[in-house]
Write a protein that binds this DNA or RNA. Sequence first.
RNA 1: GGCGCCUUGGCGGAGUGGUUACGCAGAGGUCUGCAAAACCUUUUACACCGGUUCAAUUCCGGUAGGCGCCUCCA
Length: 473
Amino acid sequence: MKLYNTRTRKIEALKPLKDNLIRIYSCGPTVYDRAHIGNLSSFIFVDTLRRTLDIAGFSVKHAMNITDVDDKTIRRSHEQYPAQNPRSALEKLTNKYTAAFQADMQAVGNDMDSLTLLRATDPRALEAMQQLILKLHEQGFAYTADDGVYFSIEAYRKSGKTYGQLLELSPNSTSRARIQNDEYDKASLHDFALWKKQKDGEPAWEFSLGGHDLTGRPGWHIECSAMSRLLLGQPFDIHTGGIDLVFPHHENEIAQSTADETNPLLATVFAHNEHILVDGKKMAKSAHNFYTLQDITKRGYDPLAFRLLVLQAHYRSQIHFSWENMEAAQHRLNDLQAIADLRHQPQISEMPGELNHLFKTTRQEIYDAMLDDLNSPLALTSLNKLFNYLAGIATPGVEGRYSEGILTFLDNVFGLQLSNRPDISNPQKQAIVTRQKARVAKDWKKSDELREQIKQQGIGLRDTPHGAVWHRL
RNA sequence: GGCGCCUUGGCGGAGUGGUUACGCAGAGGUCUGCAAAACCUUUUACACCGGUUCAAUUCCGGUAGGCGCCUCCA
């Protein structure tokens, strides 16, 4: 398995730190609103990574945080639940959007069963964060200010470690905007908050450091450092996230997680996915090109078609989302589903001999493509070549040969849910048989009527030398 | 200003020093009771300019254009 590593800027062979186990930590959503399609694409990437590791024979442990406390979340909870006390307002808001997140994840085919989710405000998580902050403070990497606790990059550097492992920071890179926006009382520019003291009306959790009451809430970066250590141990194998998280988020995580350790490693591999562009531009609410999964399903598209759209591009290149491309992906998905549905249809006795061979080479090609830095577009090519062949031999009845497990294999890799599609109903099957009899009797009127009836139920028919083959419209 | 990435046919998108993926869309045709599907053909693809080479879309240099990060945005 080869994977591009942001840390080394190279494609590297993946070597587990421990036995055959790959531990993955993914930066999860901030649940103050519905996830947008960019978030989802990021999670589709991670899910695909996990699937690929699976078929490559690794055992995988995958953890993800849910950020359920931050400025935006707090603000939104006040707006939506003004009568509630801050903690329960926050909880109501984040419960709602956590559920929405899980529903969206499921809809786009991400396997939730293999994912350990932990909320930032979970007592176990908060405990881990506070312990880490205390330790960092004790060792001189953290200092208190009027409004909270900060991480000292200077102290980190003096201890001989490198701040800027993922991104080289130049002295000139500091923008004036950043200084002007700096509302906090920190000692130097890049220092960041580990813990923020409660302000009026904010939800807060008890915390004291050196006898001082610091009741408040955690900073964003400390979440991931503490939770990844809690859930996976340290160092772990792969840390994922969107490309925008490289700096400062992951850089700061590295600093927090390695300051108190002799081992300078947080994770072996940092894997980042590129962003989705909408009509060639960055998605933004102000640009009116900001979409959620709901916007996609409202227009009648299958969430799995969105998954396919994402898989059609390499995860390290920008994905071009547009309604035209969405339409194309939906059509492609329809075709794949129609071929998959052949497994429910009557068998012919003679199977072309090369089919087994084709199943084998398809598997191998997909395996090779995916293990080569997740080349999903290339892997999909192999899938299409196989399906083109199946469609070409107009085959009701590849069912028996599907026992090769090819559909299951494809689902394990792509998550497009081709193997578990339901059969049509018995009355529908009966209607097809009746129509076939009418056709044999050259009763075209009756035959066409029946075809129209079945069409009304969303089932299309095409006549082949082996009989009628149905597909969903 | 600093760091990095990208530019492939109508759209999307792999890949390769010589054999020109794949998907979607358009046009024409074959086949068919009709339809559908399939198949065939088709719409001068590799931003531009140099260089290396027997040969470059693929390697090197430059030009133009686009994008990302450098602000708690996946």
